[in-house]
Amino acid sequence: MLGEFEYLMLSATAGLGADAYGVSIRREIEDATGKPCSIGALYTTLDRLERKGLVKTWMGDSTPERGGRPKRRVRITAKGIREAQEFYTAVRRVTRGVSWG
């Protein structure tokens, strides 16, 4: 089963589509949670997701706004979509009827 932060990363990646890379995923998570997202947590979790076959990453083009440095682009795999769907279904099932006020 996915961890909560792993699910957030997969969701952000799926939502961003072709624009998914380190900084954009981090911004997406911070906007959604209202809490800072450290690059340490981001890249170590990204490595873990890639090892599990849930995402694929590769080095993208460098841009002037990044000082000519490349970005690490991310794409969710079919397996990643399945696992995220299972997590979402499980969360919906377990919270059915629960009211958080």
Binding site: V23, Y43, S62, E65, R66, R69, P70, K71
Partner: peptide, 11 residues
């Protein structure tokens, strides 16, 4: 290292 430096330049 390159990616992280680029991230900080952009963010």
């Amino acid at each position: 290292r390159d990616v992280v430096r680029g991230d900080y330049a952009e963010s």
